[in-house]
Each structure stands twice: as structure tokens, then as C-alpha cells.
Design a protein around this nucleic acid. Structure first.
Lengths: 232, 232
DNA sequence: CCATTACGCTACGAGTCGTAGCGAAAGCGC
DNA sequence: GCGCTTTCGCTACGACTCGTAGCGTAATGG
């Protein structure tokens, strides 16, 4: 019993090289075949391991693909370009570039679809993919607040809600643009998007259940005035 | 040749009742089994038709589910509550309620995943689901502009880009909130989200390739004014 | 050297896929 | 009514994938 918490109790250890080969083979198979035509037998052959080895380590296709796709997001970094706008553009562009890869597209959406009926899978995705992305939001937000680019929110609950909203808006919009609209999230688009998002966040305080803001927001540079009073 | 463009040339017509039964059975199967465990044989049994009938009408599982899910979005309507904010909240809430249904969740994400490697399927999704949603964006936007709640954009190309952006932001954010974050898009959340979005849109003109908005926005105070003229 | 664990390989029943073939049913034009 | 055409229900089929069991071998620790 003393050997319970030992990383390796006894016997032959699992091959770390096999793990890497399997995950790489999974990504390659995702590129060539997509999710639906990907079979574990094929992945095993590509990786040079036996099919039974796969089943000893992963419960099924979904879990395997989650781990394979999670590796794609390891390169995500929060840049420090001096301003919130520049940092946000940088992160969004990185995210968009990852999502442009075919193995990310077919793999990620498929496991999310599977996760709608499998809570364990949902937690696995959250732990290995989503939470890591979300940390970038929290970091960038804290940095922007300390620079005075975003308002501080005294209420921690409200701050958490806002962080969640930012995360859903950033990740969701990029994903939708890339996968549903099927158009590239290039630099021009990212600039446009982050501009709208930041404008909304700078003054987006607590969601008062107030009436309708019929104030069109006055004029603001850019396109210049236009909506001023052209109403009917 | 005169009978070419006729809707029915001759012979026994296809049963419209069977179509409805099949689509309803598909939705029911999505609820009970989810995408991956849904089989066409099972759907045929539920619908009371032969499996071969299914294959005569749909090329495969993906096409069938697209049609089945598309029906869920038929009820989407653009309300007229007098203000852009209220209208937008209404639409987003409707969209969120549809996405809360299990058949929409597992079905929609799965076909989007499949569509990443199948252009014909992508077009089918666009025609039967996405475009219909997008029209609501265009209508609502036009109405808001005529009411003076949103700036007019003289350049049609720029206007189209903005409309696409709005659509990706709305649909993407709600989808991400519902499916990835797996938290309810309830009224409070919708209000928070639409508030940030609208604030960004009111002053979100053309994406000038300008430098960084190092304007910290000063204190955010309420909602109202904030970005007014605090530029340096 | 021995216990323990991982690995490769083969084989297997179970289930699904998509199609072919057949006879019967249901419309349309005459 | 009668034939032509298309659809429908049903059965059967080969091909494929799944996930597991069994066995002998390889690698590591005590």
C-alpha cells in the first residue's frame, strides 16, 4: 500500500513516445479524414501502435481528440504591446490562426457536439482547452484595468460575469466567423471586431434594467456623424 | 419535354406526411440519443417508414439532421418593441431559447463539424439555417438606422461587413455561452450582452487602421456617456 | 529472478452502413 | 377503366467499424 501514490508502482512504464505519436497521428487523421471518418484503428496504424494500446489509454474517440486538439492551443500567449487594443488584437489573431487549421475545425466542433450529452467530456474539454483560454482573458483584463483602459468592477461576482461574457464574445465570434460563416478571420476583420468589442466594454458597466437608451450615442469620430438626426 | 419543369411528372408522389414524420422522428432521436448514437435505421423505425425511403430522400445523416434542425428556427421573429435595445434583446432571447433545446445543441454543432469538410453541406446549412437568421440582423439594423439608433454607413461594402460582424457576434456568442460555457443564456445575461454589443455598435464606425486608442476612457460611471470625447 | 505492468497481435460477436432486388401501392394521362 | 411511372415497404446482403478477450512477449522495480 505504500506504493499507492507513487507515479509508477511497478512493471513496465507507459511509453511517452507512444503518447506523442498517437496524438500526432490523431491530428494527421483529422486533417485527412475529418472527424466522422476517423477510426481508432486507423490512428493506431498511423502511430505504429496496436489498437488495444489506444483503448488502454483513452475511453474513446472523443477523449482522444480532445487531448489531440488541446495541444494546438498550447502556443496561445498574451502579448504585451502596450495597449489593450493591441494586445486583444494579437490574442484574437492567434486564436483565429489556430482555428483556421483543419484539425482544429473538425475536431473541436465535433467534440463540443458530443459534449452536449456527456458531462464528463464537457469537463475534460473545459479543463484542457477552455480554461486555458479563459486565463488569457483574465490576465489581459487585469492588465488593462491596471493601465486604466478598462473600468474596475468592485463587485467580484459582477466582475466574473463580465469576464465570462468577454470570453464568450471573443471565442464565440471567432469560431462562428471561421466555421459557420466560413470566412477568414484576417487582420482587417480582427481589427473591426476588437474595435466594436472594446468600445462596448469601456462603457459597459453594470447591466441596469433601465428603459431604452434612445440616445444614439452622440457623435464619435470615425464615420463621423451620420445618424445624428436623420431619423424620420 | 413539356413535362420537364412540371413539379410532378408522373407516378406516385412522395408522401408529404412521411417527410414530416421523418423530420419529427429525427428530432426525437436527437433528444434521446444525440448525434453520434443516432442511426438512420432507428429514425426510419420511429417514423414508421422503411429505411430505404430515407436514403431515397436524403444523402445521409448530415443532410437529414440539417433539415430537421432547420425547422426549429422557423419560429424566429423580429419583434417590434420600439427600440433597438429591446428588439435585440427579444431576438437574442428567442435564439437562446432555441439553442437551449437538446435537439438543437447536439444536432447543430455536429452538422457544423461535418460541414468543415463538406462544402455542399456547408451551403445547405447556410441556405436553410444561417441565411434566415441573418435576415433578422439586416432587418433589425435597417429599422434601427431609420430610427436613428445606429449610424448609417454610406459604403455598401462596409455596411455588409458590419452586418456580417454583428451576425457573427450575436450568434457566436450565444452559441458559445450555451454550448461551450454550458451556462444558461437567460434574461439577465442577454441584457448584459446586448448592452455591451450595442454600445460598441453605436460608435463602432469603420475600422480605421489608426494607432492604438490609448484613451483609457476615464471613469466609466454610468452607462450613458463614456466614450464621448475623452480623447487625449 | 520474480512480480507487475505495458505492449503487439489475433480473433471475435455485435452493430451499422448503404445498396440491390422484388412486389405492391398510388398517382397521371389516355 | 388501363397502362405508365414513380414511390414505398420489405428482405437480404457484403463491407466495415467497434470494443473486448486472450495470449505470449517486453520492460521495469524489488
Amino acid at each position: 500500500m505504500q506504493s499507492r501514490t507513487r507515479s509508477v508502482r511497478a512493471g513496465r512504464p507507459r511509453s511517452a513516445a507512444a503518447d506523442a505519436a498517437i496524438l500526432a497521428a490523431t491530428r494527421a487523421a483529422l486533417v485527412e479524414l475529418g472527424w466522422s471518418k476517423l477510426t481508432l484503428g486507423d490512428v493506431a496504424t498511423r502511430a505504429g501502435v496496436a489498437k488495444t494500446t489506444l483503448y488502454r489509454r483513452w475511453a474513446g474517440k472523443s477523449e482522444l481528440v480532445v487531448d489531440a486538439v488541446a495541444g494546438l492551443f498550447d502556443e496561445l500567449r498574451l502579448p504585451d504591446r502596450g495597449s489593450l487594443a493591441a494586445d486583444l488584437e494579437g490574442v484574437v489573431l492567434q486564436f483565429a490562426r489556430i482555428l483556421a487549421r483543419p484539425e482544429a475545425q473538425s475536431g473541436l466542433m465535433a467534440v463540443i457536439a458530443e459534449a452536449t450529452r456527456d458531462e464528463a467530456l464537457r469537463n475534460r474539454i473545459r479543463a484542457s482547452i477552455v480554461d486555458r483560454q479563459k486565463r488569457l482573458v483574465l490576465e489581459g483584463r487585469a492588465r488593462a484595468q491596471s493601465r486604466g483602459e478598462l473600468p474596475w468592477e468592485p463587485d467580484p461576482e459582477e466582475a466574473a460575469r463580465t469576464a465570462d461574457l468577454i470570453f464568450d464574445m471573443v471565442a464565440g465570434t471567432v469560431v462562428h466567423r471561421t466555421l459557420v460563416s466560413a470566412e477568414p478571420a484576417d487582420e482587417a476583420w480582427v481589427r473591426h471586431f476588437t474595435r466594436v468589442l472594446l468600445t462596448g466594454l469601456r462603457s459597459g458597466g453594470p447591466p441596469e434594467p433601465s428603459p431604452l437608451p434612445r440616445n444614439p450615442g452622440g457623435r464619435e469620430g470615425g464615420t463621423a456623424r451620420a445618424e445624428g438626426d436623420s431619423g424620420d
